[in-house]
Design a binder for these strands. Structure first.
Lengths: 209, 209
DNA sequence: TTGTTAAGTTAACAGTGTTAAATTAACGGT
DNA sequence: ACCGTTAATTTAACACTGTTAACTTAACAA
């Protein structure tokens, strides 16, 4: 209630207060279901106060999305230390899937919805950086496996390979997130599905030992 | 404007008029972006007239969704005539992907968004029927390949196999639909991605010739 | 000529994201 | 000690959404 010239630190504090409240609500019920007024009420401010710090709801979502990308990359980063490149590649897929299924609503925003015009320059995630960009991490591993001659002969396009591996894991995760509660299909255990997909990647792309 | 007791045929006619208008708009811009008033205006009725024929927007979407499921199954049905079971399985994946990428907004509704409580009994699509249920078709093919002993030894759960194949193809399609316009990734050609995924399924699950 | 009833429309409600206008309080200069 | 200026915040309000209630209109049956 008391308005006064605030220091940058205080401004930043409120900013992250908003972000934290929004993240929690979004993660719990998805972005569509959460209202600006609700976010504001949760932190004891008026809804319009949010607009002093974020252009609109989309900007708020986008910023959270960016931090999620960083969180994913950070989670995957330690996996890059595994020595065996193939093993490392598999562990990366496993870690990715864990992230997706632990934070389904975040994953939804990140990879399952078309956010309009997400140009790389206005994003805070440094593209191509192996430390903060999950796709770059995957490409790195794929390149390593390729350099060691472990992929089957026909495969030469590492971008194509990386995108296919990504699609495979993403397929399991996104299907689980969207349709797990659908009685239509007699779903197998999700961990079994991930495991078989990993096995398929291995047998499908890697030379027989 | 002229209200009079209508025959069932006339009622049905208006029903499908609404459905057709809605389908076109939904397909063009997605369900979220299209408004009930807009649908109504497109067919020269008041927005509330729609509610005489559909409980709410969700019911309208769901009905369209059902016909899309039937359309998919119908498209895939002819593929089932291919004699070679493995070849048939691959063709099924190809046809599925074609459907997804030709009707991205329909595919979105069908497989990429959690419609609340889609219980099978109130749907018009007969579950398990090989003619009208695409998943049943896939399971049929997988079972056939299994019965002929063409999968690698370890694989015994045909449900798990079917779901993994589905996830693989779905992964390529849904990633394309959600993120194709994302400058983040240097995307390979979509047909190459589908092709490699098919190859991965083949090498990953089928016995070496 | 009436009711009655179905088909449709207009008016209205509650809720959304968002913006414009007011309010409040702290600061700097005189 | 006052007084603008200015930043932070709130209240009002707008344009829009899906949806429901209330009303209108026309055709049939008695």
């Amino acid at each position: 209630m008391p308005p006064k010239p605030k220091t940058d630190a205080e401004r930043q504090q409120l900013r992250t207060l908003i972000l934290d409240a929004a993240r929690e609500l979004f993660a719990a019920r998805g972005v569509e279901a959460v209202t600006m007024r609700e976010i504001a009420k949760n932190i004891g401010y008026s809804s319009t106060a949010i607009y002093l710090h974020f252009k609109d709801k989309e900007a708020l979502i986008r910023e959270l999305c960016d931090t999620d990308f960083l969180a994913l990359a950070s989670k995957l980063h330690r996996i890059l230390e595994i020595a065996n490149p193939v093993e490392r590649m598999m562990a990366l897929g496993q870690g990715y899937a864990e992230f997706a299924l632990t934070h389904p609503n975040h994953y939804r925003i990140m990879f399952m919805s078309q956010r309009p015009g997400c140009s790389p320059e206005d994003s805070k995630v440094p593209q191509g950086n192996a430390e903060h960009d999950a796709y770059a991490q995957l490409k790195l591993v794929v390149q390593d496996v390729y350099d060691k001659g472990l992929f089957i002969e026909e495969l030469t396009d590492t971008d194509l390979i990386a995108q296919t591996i990504w699609a495979a894991i993403h397929g399991v995760c996104s299907l689980e997130i969207s349709l797990a509660n659908d009685a239509w299909v007699n779903w197998s255990d999700i961990s079994a599905r991930i495991s078989l997909m990993q096995q398929m990647i291995l047998r499908g792309l890697i030379k027989a030992a």
